[in-house]
Design a protein around this nucleic acid. Sequence first.
DNA 1: CGCTTGACTAACC
DNA 2: CGGTTAGCCAAGC
Length: 103
Amino acid sequence: MASEEALQRFYTVLAAVPAGKVITYGQLAAQAGNPKGGRWAGYLLRHLPANSNLPWHRVVNAQGKVSFPEGSEAALRQIALLEDEGIEFSNSNRINLKRFGAV
DNA sequence: CGCTTGACTAACC
DNA sequence: CGGTTAGCCAAGC
């Protein structure tokens, strides 16, 4: 089914994101075959298998920011992982997608 | 089958 | 730049 193929592409693309780079939900969904599946990407990431080695932390929204409320443990964890990979954050926890964008 | 919800995005004001 | 509206996708009830 196309859905399963899209899902496979989604995981493939996500796994293909190099360390030190980030990708937006929209781009991720677009490369997975759903140019308008931004929400779909978010849904999948949210229901991601716990024992997967997928770099979910390299996925940020179009604003170059974490899609979690600032201060939340999930957001802090993601930011910490990204910084550990060399990603730099601006004064507002924003990432320069022009520099760190995987696309 | 139809409405609501959600880790989204772009356009508009 | 912040708040609102509309569009899209898939899952849950």
